[in-house]
Design a protein around this nucleic acid. Structure first.
Lengths: 200, 200, 200, 200
DNA sequence: AATGAATGAGCCTTCATTCAT
DNA sequence: AATGAATGAAGGCTCATTCAT
């Protein structure tokens, strides 16, 4: 074994350093040198492992998205009903592991990157669609198809919106407050649904 | 008068060019040369007018925010009730003038910039607070104070969220669909409020 | 006018610096910085004028080839007979302006570059073919077609060969000696031709 | 014995890989990694065997030159007269083993390298002088000393010239055509010599 | 013997910014 | 007012070379 561990260890160190550096800077305008230094290695080695700055970014993005996917997965396991599952997905989005300011900033930076970089865009869309399907699949067991689509869109937008506001603004509710607001959004739809059902 | 008009004209040309360039690129990674060229002048002149790239960006940001403020103002004039006024603010956010893909991309780019640049952050917050006050002022005439805060946060987040999704993803409702979804969010709250009132 | 002259002047300065630097180093392994410094400007300006290192090289190559073409042209003007014209072309190749060691080294370096760079190769071939046509056109008035082709090939190779030897080896005849050897080659062919004619 | 043979075997593999790589690239701009990979070993091992990239190049050059020397030697063995021996040397230069395009490109690259690297230059000159002596030794038995020198220079230049043209240009005679043209050059001198003798 | 890990040095290129005209 | 000329600083990337194992 070499000075600081196996390539796997070092690749992960680079990915974490990338996220930290971007989160701290609030931009993708970070240099490979900064990232490498934070990861305790030379910029040359960073290139050796990933080939290019772009690929470092993509790897970090994949890491963040995969992390989120796992958080969702874990929470879904204990959910018993469609409503539970929807609420689990919402909660996953505001899980502490996702919601530290730096992570959120990195997340948004990668989000923006999808505007420029087709590979980043593809990566993002794979996860976005999976999440959307997941929401719709469960919503459709409660609402009619059209409404399910709408609620899914509304939920996803609200979550993204809170992410951006959380990163940028000061007078935003805290983690639990935000979580609650999104859960309330679902609750409001359920209430309306119930009324419709009753009146029927 | 010079080749292309008064300083005011040229400053505006630069600002519009900045927004267009950023919107097109989907990043703040645009060069002063690109901006100046699109505005039909030399990069040196751009500096002469604004002093630095940072200040060009700030001016463009101010322009976008001010534009939005005016759109809101215009729509508020014809609103008669608190509810009308809230709906007017929502509609302003999805006014065609705000919602073309390039404008949205520029808007988001400036949003992100607030993460790095304190002046940009201040600028953004001035407008965000004004908008928030505006919403809360009207909401509080319908809801109790705490609920008004929540609805205001929810609305603002949903709007921001749809902006980011609109810029980035493909399967998102169109302009009217999005507008309707946000209006529905308000509607849902109003429905709950009515029930509470009735049951009281 | 700016500090050091018009763009044309500076472009030419860069081209000459490129040739000198390559000639001195005997390789294309010279940095843009070295070239720019020798031309009295910053590397950034060199890029501004030519766009890339490759294009600097191509411009220098074009300059050398064009220079040679002009030398040939000038000498051809006073030639009266086909034989005179062939001899003029030979002499042009060993004109002092072409035959300084540094120029020869640069020439060879560019020659080699044609092995890697398609644009360089095209550039070279345009000139090579023109020269070949020129030789053949005149030779064919003395020899039959097949022989004319052979003599043209032989002459061109001998000239190239002396260039490379001149640059690399020590015990090579001087400029006039070399020139004479190539002229002799033509002479030998003419002698054989005469004998054939006489015996006919 | 190790994975791939004795050090001698591996050194030779590296040398052949170097020649192949340079021949293919048409430049000395090949990396040690490329060479080592083609030779089936790590760059570190290549360094271990040769000490530096420079020394790898020198070894490859020595190999090429030695190879040529042996080709000449072999052909000289069956030659009976001075003329035969001169013709044998010419033929050796266009032996198939020397005249494949890649070998020629490598040969020229090393030739050029002599412009930068004194050791390379020395190496080249040792062989060049030996060849020259060899030619002159035989020529002097046919021509007077001054003419012998000239013919030797002419032959050597023509050979070098055809090498460079063969590598670079498209409309060049094939191997046999070239060989014949150089042999013709000798023939032309012999014809002249005969006439002089006859007229004497 | 052999290699993967690691890096320092260097190069091309870009760009915001300045300055003389 | 306006610009072309010019540059310093910095960043991504490559590569020969070293070293521990």
């Amino acid at each position: 074994m070499s000075k600081s561990g196996t390539p796997i260890v070092r690749r992960k160190a680079l990915i974490l350093a990338t996220i930290a550096e971007i989160g701290e800077a609030g931009t993708l305008d970070v240099t490979v040198s900064q990232i490498a230094q934070r990861a305790g290695m030379s910029p040359a080695l960073a290139h050796h492992y990933f080939g290019s700055k772009d690929k470092i970014f993509l790897a970090a993005m994949r890491y963040i998205l995969e992390n989120f996917r796992q958080t969702v997965s874990a929470r879904l396991k204990t959910a018993k009903s469609p409503e539970d599952r929807i609420r689990a997905i919402i909660d996953a989005s505001f899980d502490s592991s996702q919601f530290e300011r730096e992570i959120v900033a990195a997340w948004l930076a990668f989000y923006m990157r999808a505007l420029q970089s087709p590979p980043a865009r593809r990566l993002l869309q794979v996860y976005a669609r999976r999440l959307h399907s997941n929401l719709v699949f469960n919503l459709i067991q409660i609402f009619d198809a059209a409404t399910a689509q709408q609620v899914a869109q509304g939920l996803a937008s609200m979550i993204d919106g809170f992410y951006i506001r959380r990163a940028l603004q000061d007078r935003v509710p805290d983690q639990q407050g935000i979580r609650q607001l999104v859960q309330d959004y679902l609750e409001l739809w359920l209430e309306r649904e119930n009324r419709i059902d009753q009146s029927a």
